[in-house]
């Protein structure tokens, strides 16, 4: 069952619109001029040489990446635990757990950002990467919570029962049956959490300190000054790198699956 010609045409046009900004940025990064023009003037790799030699970009990349991973891991753990609590816990009303887990998703960033800053500045977390990682993790919790909750509803309780009937202890059942069943969903949620953190600028700007400068913060300061081709180059490298990582991961997973079947 294939889609009709009309919708296919729309899809292709939209695809071009989606990709257009990225294409423009990639093209302008190879300009030999000092200002961004499109089409670019001449061809050169000078801006790539510049960013690879620039500490600020390298440091920001490391900070962004570390923050993103920390945030994703924290969000995965918290989101998963809350999902289990909502689905299977009996003490705390489920609605309470769900409200708590979902709120970060519906609070506009600028609102959350002010709150994070006003609260965290009073603690020793401030001026440390954990402050931003924790804040970003909170933004990622709803994704992980939802994904795991959805997976839990799909888990047939009889599978676990079967395992325990066969003599497995409770912890064994959790470790060998339940966790593997929901892990992919938790990781997918974590991926969303990572993206959220990776591209987040409002909260990051508020919590930024000399040692805590992420890529979006650099981008924003460049955007305010008028972008330079070096920014295009950095953005292109980052997009490419991210995609390459994902493709490698995809290939790895294919090979793993090939082995297991």
């Amino acid at each position: 069952m294939n889609a009709g010609l009309f919708s296919r045409t729309i899809a292709v046009v939209v695809a071009l619109l989606l990709a257009a900004p990225t294409i423009v940025i990639a093209a302008t990064s190879f300009t030999s001029g000092v200002i961004i023009t499109f089409p670019p003037k001449g061809f050169s790799m000078r801006w790539y040489e510049e960013i690879f030699g620039d500490r600020a970009w390298r440091d920001a990349f490391v900070t962004s990446f570390t923050t993103g991973i920390l945030a994703a891991v924290i969000a995965m753990v918290i989101g998963t635990l809350l999902a289990f609590m909502a689905a299977r816990g009996r003490l705390v009303p489920r609605s309470l757990v769900a409200t708590l887990a979902m709120t970060p998703m519906i609070v506009p960033l600028v609102v959350a950002g002010i709150g994070f800053y006003m609260a965290y500045v009073h603690t020793s977390l401030y001026n440390h990467i954990t402050s931003l990682a924790l804040a970003h993790a909170m933004l990622g919790v709803p994704f992980c919570f939802l994904n795991v909750l959805a997976a839990l509803t799909a888990v047939d309780p009889r599978v676990e029962e079967a395992a325990s009937i066969c003599g497995a202890g409770k912890l064994t059942v959790i470790a060998t049956v339940t966790v593997p069943l929901v892990l992919p969903s938790a990781v997918a949620g974590g991926l969303f959490a990572f993206v959220t953190s990776w591209d987040e600028v409002v909260v990051a700007t508020l919590l930024a300190t000399p040692t805590l400068r992420t890529l979006p913060i650099l981008f924003l300061s460049q955007l305010r000054e008028g972008l330079e081709p070096s920014t295009s180059a950095a953005a292109t490298v980052i997009t490419l790198l991210t995609i390459v990582l994902l493709v490698i991961a995809g290939l790895l997973s294919r090979r793993q699956r090939g082995r297991s079947t």
Partner: peptide, 30 residues
């Protein structure tokens, strides 16, 4: 599920507390 110690509540409570402190407090301050 068997009655008795509520395993999942026990596990989830610390997570809940983290969210309350790390997100609830800031929101309350606003």
């Amino acid at each position: 599920g068997r009655p008795g110690i509520d395993f999942w509540t026990l596990l989830g409570t610390p997570a809940m507390l983290v969210v309350l402190v790390a997100f609830g407090v800031p929101l309350f301050m606003v």
